[in-house]
């Protein structure tokens, strides 16, 4: 898995609450059997004037000029600044795949939907949780300064602005460890094979109907 330790980069906005995963990557792109290549279709309906289709080159599609991430000043953004309940709706992991493929390394928002939050960690994308007030401050600073950058440090769990704010954020120890070290979670679980087998033996004795049914 891709590791994340620290990142400094240009901040881009997604200034609305309850951004759902259909909005992040519309359903027609879920027909792919690959994990990569979703970046050009990130926020497809908000970003382009026409309807996107899988396999179509996006470089010549007409852009919606009013969509902030299309503004020249946000070109190359690698930190997405967002509002509460980001990533709600469908469980599609194509959402973090698309964000990561577009070039985002981190998202900052006051809250996330549970499945999206979980999916981010599997893909080296750090979802930072700050308070609504702190996110407001970052939006204001970003609006005021072209080329606005932020520094995110995972070991110390901090977001630092050039204006001197240092905001700390919380995350689970296990997730932090996996992300910092780029650990293979499946490999880690397989180290517990004996415990899993032991559980299965015990459970099969108690609830035998759970085993062997589907053939």
């Amino acid at each position: 898995m891709k590791a994340f330790t620290a990142h400094r980069g240009l901040v881009g906005p997604m200034d609305r609450a309850n951004v759902d995963t259909d909005m992040i990557i519309p359903k027609q792109f879920l027909k792919s059997i690959k994990r990569s290549g979703f970046g050009p279709n990130l926020f497809d309906e908000l970003r382009y004037q026409d309807e996107g289709q899988p396999g179509v080159d996006c470089s010549n599609r007409p852009l919606k000029a009013e969509f902030p991430l299309n503004f020249p000043r946000y070109k190359g953004a690698s930190v997405l600044l967002a509002r509460k309940n980001f990533g709600c709706g469908s469980s599609r992991e194509h959402a973090p795949w698309a964000l990561e493929d577009y070039g985002f390394n981190a998202v900052i928002a006051p809250s996330y939907a549970d499945i999206f939050y979980n999916n981010c960690f599997k893909n080296g994308l750090l979802p930072v949780i700050l308070t609504e007030e702190q996110v407001d401050i970052l939006f204001k600073e970003m609006d005021a300064e072209e080329g606005y950058q932020l520094s995110i440090d995972l070991p110390s769990q901090t977001v630092t602005t050039d204006s001197g704010h240092v905001f700390t954020f919380e995350l689970d120890e296990f997730r932090k460890d996996c992300l910092l070290n780029g650990l293979d979670e499946i490999g880690l679980t397989l180290q517990e094979s004996d415990a899993i087998k032991e559980y299965e033996v015990k459970r099969a004795a108690q609830h035998p109907w759970v085993f062997g049914a589907i053939k």
């Binding site: 973090p96 499945i115 979980n118 999916n119 599997k122 893909n123 499946i186 679980t189 397989l190």
Partner: peptide, 12 residues
């Protein structure tokens, strides 16, 4: 669950 977890469940 997401696709990474689909793989996790398949494997473990």
């Amino acid at each position: 669950i997401g696709t990474s977890e689909v793989e996790h469940v398949l494997a473990t």
